[in-house]
Amino acid sequence: MEKLQEETMTNSQIPKARKNGLVIQETGDEVLVYDVDSNRAHCLNRTAAFVWKSCDGRRSVPEIAALLGKELANKVDEDLVWLAIDQLSNESLLESGIRLKRSGFSRRDAIRKIGLAAAVTLPVVAMLSFPNGALAVTCAASYCGTNDPGNGCGGGQYCCNSGGLYRCQVAPCSTPC
């Protein structure tokens, strides 16, 4: 993941924001997105939200970088846009089938490089996963880590945090609450 494949930019690399199966809520400069298919919510900070909204399937990365620069009244490195695109793509918020790679792009290097300049907030796409589980298999967060009967699992099962989800399991929890 760190070192992405070397490719030249082609039309297939024009990013396009995914719209289908998403519920979108703008909150100030940031955007909340709920993905109906994956049952996950995302929070895009101002930079990530701007890049995402600019991915209209026509604009290239340099064009998006220029637009973002105007918006933020600062010079914006293309790597910043690639960094956003990388995260948006990982979270399935861009149309699939587009090969969004850039020659020699490395997320770690980009963060180091852009972070040092620090004139613009780095793009962040936070993710929150929700349980699909039926009532019977979920438990109360306040009882996490215990097999207390009050956890709602029944039968002495433990209530454990599984990636932010609270689920019942027979074995003691192996992850912190």
Binding site: Q25, T27, G28, D29, E30, V31, L32, Y34, V36, N39, A41, C43, L44, N45, R46, A49, A126, L128, F130, P131, N132, G133, T138, G164, L165
Partner: peptide
């Protein structure tokens, strides 16, 4: 920030599957 705050609220839904 408003988005982060909203995210915090979502992370504290009493019965999270209801969002679906």
């Amino acid at each position: 920030a408003s988005g982060g705050g909203a995210f915090n609220v979502l992370g504290n839904l009493f019965y999270p599957p209801a969002i679906r």
